[in-house]
Design a protein around this nucleic acid. Sequence first.
DNA 1: ATGCAAATGATAATCAATATCAATATAGGT
DNA 2: ACCTATATTGATATTGATTATCATTTGCAT
Lengths: 145, 145
Amino acid sequence: MREERDIFGKYLSRHNLRDTPQRELILDTFLKREEHISAEQLYDIIKKRDPSIGQATVYRNLKLLSEAGLAREVDFGDGVLRYEHNYNHPHHDHLICRSCGKTVEVVDAVIEELQKRIAEQYGFELTDHKMYLYGNCGNCRKKSK
Amino acid sequence: MREERDIFGKYLSRHNLRDTPQRELILDTFLKREEHISAEQLYDIIKKRDPSIGQATVYRNLKLLSEAGLAREVDFGDGVLRYEHNYNHPHHDHLICRSCGKTVEVVDAVIEELQKRIAEQYGFELTDHKMYLYGNCGNCRKKSK
DNA sequence: ATGCAAATGATAATCAATATCAATATAGGT
DNA sequence: ACCTATATTGATATTGATTATCATTTGCAT
């Protein structure tokens, strides 16, 4: 948390950007939450602490946190962009329940390696990827029986 | 092509839906194109044959084609939903060039198997997945040198 | 303290996609 | 062929997430 603040502070000064109370509030609130969060959701939470904050500011600064390497955008395909922690939070993919929305973070070294190989096969240099596994979680399967 | 028309026709009558010239035109035009296409792009093409067609009709019927199993939605994450053939066109994933947008369809049986296994590990029953590999294709890499 | 560029907040604008709704067209029965 | 019920269409308005605009405020280097 202190580290993240440092990184952000350095990113700001290195890019001639300014340190504002709104930015600090957004960073802190974002860091306190562990799950993926949308700009809208974060805005709702932040409004309680500072009712005068504008939602455009939240949108803007989540983008900024991504550029600074502290957040990462996640697109589950439901039309809403979410953000997750990027610092000390290595790459992973997502397993998502189609009926309750529960998500699990997963990684598989073999898959990662195969992806790289596939790309090379077609002359591509792989930069990144998105993999979303959709299904029904144990709970939901029980309920529907 | 005849087969697809048959399937569509049967789907329509089975669901108490009607056979309209617009639907036929949309299906035919969609089938003629091999690449992924957005509703907007398809609309632009179709307008040339039938300038009186409404774009809502194109949107509506691409959704319908998906439900009938003839099309499949693809979301590359750029905010536009695209459609690709689904009949006689088995599941595959996509390799996408970040700089020119070129796409290649890929499949890897091992990855597919691993995905299923990961899901099971977490008590999920896998229904489907999305995997997009992003990188730079051979051509673009040459150019940037 | 001062000045300038960056940031904010309110609001309007985008953009893809969907909803609404009156007018039209289709399919099945007569 | 004609009716009729209802699906479909096309035009348009609306939505919902996100971004752009812009006047005002603010951070910060000098």
